[in-house]
């Protein structure tokens, strides 16, 4: 009996070089980033950096501006994710029937998603213009007093939130809609035959079938909200009075306004760790049983 030498699989040559490149690039980048964050590298005085150990990390936790930004990120991410999921699911259930132009509605829902985020920011800044914006005009029609949407520290974060919700709820709608349409309808009919009322069918049969899609879209939205930048840059630039400065935005300011790139990278690393912890927590909450399909 001869032993057969395992012939080398040529398909490996297709992906290995690229995976190796990506691995090398990401490892090199990670090491470089960590190295920088342990020094006090500044673009203002290049070439005179020295090793400072964990100073940048210690500094972070004693930096009230950073802590406020972290808290704001948590608030923004939680609100954006929860509202977008809830609103999106409500719209999906509302649209779950046959009607003329369903395809057209779907196409139109795509528009906010593919709109350039910078343009979305400008659009909402325009609508929120205190003197001549549409938002205040509508409020005046309803007899409500004017709101300084982007100029008031108490309101600005929520104004940005509205723009984010406007852009990304359609994404939730489309994804959950797709999941709904690929789900089998027999169990729903079975439940109806078994005597369930419509709300019971929705609650006990339909929603559990959509759980997976909802969980995934929630994860995606959470990741993106943590990293949100464009809307903040365009609509408020972190203001007024830092009231809309998220951690990601603060990192940008530290790096490219203060040119303190060591501290900025320490912030970026903390943000990454924070993102991963949040995701893992969310993941274990959303997918409680390991290996569940």
């Amino acid at each position: 009996m001869s032993t057969v030498a395992t012939a080398s699989d040529p398909t490996r040559h297709f992906f290995q070089p690229i995976i190796v490149c990506l691995t090398v690039a990401s490892v090199a980048l990670t090491l470089f980033v960590i190295w920088i964050s342990l020094h006090d590298l500044s673009l203002m005085r290049a070439g005179r950096e020295k090793f400072v150990g964990l100073d940048n990390y210690v500094r972070f936790f004693g930096d009230p501006r950073a802590m406020a930004a972290l808290w704001r990120t948590v608030l923004f991410t939680t609100l954006a994710t929860v509202i977008e999921i809830a609103l999106g699911l409500a719209v999906v259930l509302f649209l779950d029937r046959d009607f003329a132009m369903k395809r057209l509605v779907r196409t139109l829902l795509l528009v906010p998603i593919i709109m350039t985020p910078v343009v979305v920011g400008l659009t909402w800044r325009f609508l929120f213009d205190p003197a001549s914006g549409m938002a205040n005009y509508l409020l005046s029609l309803a007899g409500i007093s004017q709101v300084d949407w982007l100029g008031s520290p108490q309101v600005a974060l929520f104004s940005v939130l509205i723009a984010d919700i406007w852009q990304w709820t359609p994404f939730v709608i489309l994804l959950v809609m797709a999941a709904l349409e690929s789900a089998p309808t027999d169990p729903l009919d079975a439940a109806r035959v078994d005597g369930a009322r419509e709300w019971q069918v929705t609650w006990y049969v339909l929603l559990p079938m959509l759980r997976r899609a909802l969980a995934i879209v929630a994860l995606i939205r959470a990741i993106d909200s943590i990293k949100a930048f464009d809307l903040f840059y365009i609509m408020t630039r972190g203001g007024p009075a830092l009231s809309t400065e998220t951690l990601n935005y603060y990192g940008y300011i530290v790096a490219f306004t203060n040119f303190d790139i060591s501290y900025a990278l320490a912030i970026a690393i903390i943000l990454t760790i924070f993102t991963n912890v949040a995701l893992l927590t969310m993941y274990s909450v959303l997918f409680p049983k390991a290996g569940e399909r």
Partner: peptide
């Protein structure tokens, strides 16, 4: 998943 800040800087 990593924020763009991490590789842009």
């Amino acid at each position: 998943i990593a924020p763009a800040l991490l590789f842009v800087i």
